[in-house]
Nucleic acid binder design. Structure first.
Length: 516
RNA sequence: GGCUCCUUAGCUCAGUUGGUUAGAGCGGUGGAAUCAUAAUCCAUGUGUCCCCAGUUCGAAUCUGGGAGGAGCCA
């Protein structure tokens, strides 16, 4: 491992009871783009995703399927690994909570918190829903058919009474509020931080963190029959992946604490309240940032299994090509907001930004070079003010994008890049190399050189979001060095380099003609 | 029920600590060009800045009230 700066980013681990859908793809995509960006920007990156495989629900699902729990997990976890493959995710690890290393890690964390006096044994009594894996207060319940009790979610609940270990969450209220106060970017977007603050300010109750009614999980150390309950097990994966409990390991030293835990807004509380409390209780440093992103609707409608409008990422890729999907998901909506997935806006966005925008600029530039410069990158003369303005405009975009990416403002970052695509189109229109061909071939070569250079730099900037397409494009241009350190005039594209007949890399999409 | 946030052009949204003619992208309309994936470029917006009242020399921007919507909590 080098002494480069480090960047550790995580997705939540996905619950194996679920089938991969657009939401999973979205969360991991955001992390993938950040991970790729940081690698290109010279960081050592640890990008982690994986599956959460414990719990009563999994145990029951396995039973229903007639297989052992682990076999069930193997099967479903594989679907998430397939998704990572299909989406071209560049995760460095895929962790599973059923791994032995994780058991060791979770138990060690437990012991450490216990030694510090934040775990105690008591009895738990209350209404519990297996389906939701959550406890409910009496006043939250509604009356169902035949007098049965139902959770607010409509799930059946049962009265549960059992011994349980508790985490002294209540002891961390002030410390947590202090964290939020001193690190205003600890939770983004800001509106989510406000929610978290008010939740914590409203008072914290101790958490039941073990169960005795099922077996599929990490056993509580020295406590027969107790299994760690949900979050303390799951969240610890972020530590496991960097070698915890071996705090002296190179990985741990380099990557902990994490820079960003990416989460969906539904699990923000666990990451922004429970997780830092666990870490504080174990004397471990806190991550820099929890980012809670929004949800997608489908053609304006809330997505739900019962409505049958779940968006299948595999199908999407099939229909629209991978990089278009990647691009749309992060370009269309301010990250953090909810967004609507509509076929019309998808086609509009991809056609105008990719096919008509960057794709067309690249194609017209390279094509003119191919036809008019012997299939080689031309040799430029002295650069005019316009030439320089375009190139420095693109160079200047990197620091802007860097800053925006550090705030997970994907949509603004791409905005900044695409404003330079527009500048490039304005440039070529003004320079009119197709006229220069007859009037001033030398100047034409300079203009086309500048265009090729613009394509090179823009493409390098776009790698994180569309790795496959850009790889093809840069491949056509024979550009081998693709890091962000190449975005200076010291690394201009080489005159005389071969340029084969260019092929467009961004397909144009047709609007669906009619609703079915 | 409590708390927080939102409501700006046809659509999606920007609008910094209140200050001159309120912006962008997309779409629409007109024109130019023809190298390019019929792509591109130029021009083009008389918007009740949700409503009402107030503070101020001056408010989309602050205060109060109201309407509609969202989120978190109970």
């Amino acid at each position: 491992m080098s002494d480069k700066k480090s960047y550790y980013i995580t997705t939540p681990i996905y619950y194996v009871n679920d089938v991969p859908h657009i939401g999973h793809a979205y969360t991991t995509l955001a992390c993938d783009v950040l991970a790729r960006f940081k690698r290109l920007d010279g960081y050592d990156v640890m990008f982690l995703t994986g599956t959460d495989e414990h719990g009563q629900k999994v145990e029951k699902s396995a039973e229903k399927a007639g297989v052992a729990p682990l076999e069930f997990c193997d099967r479903v976890s594989a679907r998430f690994q397939d998704l990572a493959q299909a989406m071209n995710f560049s995760n460095d690890q895929f962790i599973r909570t059923t791994e032995e290393r994780h058991k060791i890690s979770a138990q060690h964390l437990w012991n450490r918190i216990k030694e510090n006096g934040f775990i105690y044994e008591d009895n738990y009594a209350g209404w519990y829903s297996v389906r939701d894996e959550a406890f409910y207060g009496e006043d939250e319940l509604t009356e169902g058919e035949g007098g049965s009790k139902l959770a607010p979610t409509g799930a059946p609940v049962e009265w549960v009474e059992e011994p349980s270990y508790f985490f002294k969450l209540s002891a961390f209220q002030d410390k947590l509020l202090e964290v939020y106060e001193n690190h205003p970017d600890f939770v983004l977007p800001k509106s989510r931080l406000n929610e978290v603050k008010s939740f914590v300010a409203g008072g914290l109750q101790d958490l039941s963190i073990s169960r005795t009614t099922f077996n599929w999980g990490v056993p509580v150390p020295d406590a027969d029959g107790h299994i760690m309950y949900v979050w303390i097990d799951a969240l610890t994966n972020y530590l496991t992946a960097v070698d915890y409990p071996n705090e002296n390991s190179e990985k741990f030293q380099k990557f902990w604490p994490a820079n960003v835990h990416m989460v969906g807004k539904d699990i923000l509380r666990f990451h922004a309240v429970y997780w830092p409390a666990f870490l504080l209780a174990a004397d471990l440093p806190l991550p820099d940032r929890i980012f809670a992103h929004g949800w997608w609707t489908n053609e304006g409608q809330k997505i739900s299994k019962s409505l049958g409008n779940v968006i299948d990422p595999f199908e999407l890729i099939d229909t629209y090509t991978l990089d278009s999907v990647r691009f749309f998901l992060l370009r269309e909506v301010p990250f953090g907001n909810d967004g609507d997935f509509s076929r019309t806006s998808f086609v509009n966005r991809c056609n105008s930004d990719l096919s008509n925008g960057f794709g067309n600029f690249a194609q017209r530039s390279l094509s003119m070079i191919f036809k008019n410069c012997d299939g080689k990158i031309p040799t430029p003369g002295a650069l005019s003010a316009e030439d320089k303005a375009l190139l420095t405009g693109i160079e200047d975009v990197l620091p802007q994008v860097r800053e925006l990416m550090d705030k997970q403002a994907f949509n603004k970052a791409f905005d900044a890049i695409w404003s330079q695509v527009a500048a490039a189109d304005v440039y070529i229109s003004a320079q009119e190399p197709w006229k220069l061909r007859k009037t001033d071939p030398a100047r034409m070569e300079t203009v086309l050189y500048v265009c090729a250079e613009a394509v090179r730099m823009l493409a390098i900037l776009m790698q994180p979001i569309m790795p496959e397409s850009i790889d093809k494009l840069l491949g056509q241009m024979n550009i081998d060095n693709r890091g962000f350190d190449q975005l200076t005039d010291a690394h201009r594209i080489k005159p005389g380099a071969d340029l084969p007949k260019p092929e467009g890399v961004f397909p144009r999409f047709e609007h669906a003609t009619d609703e079915a």
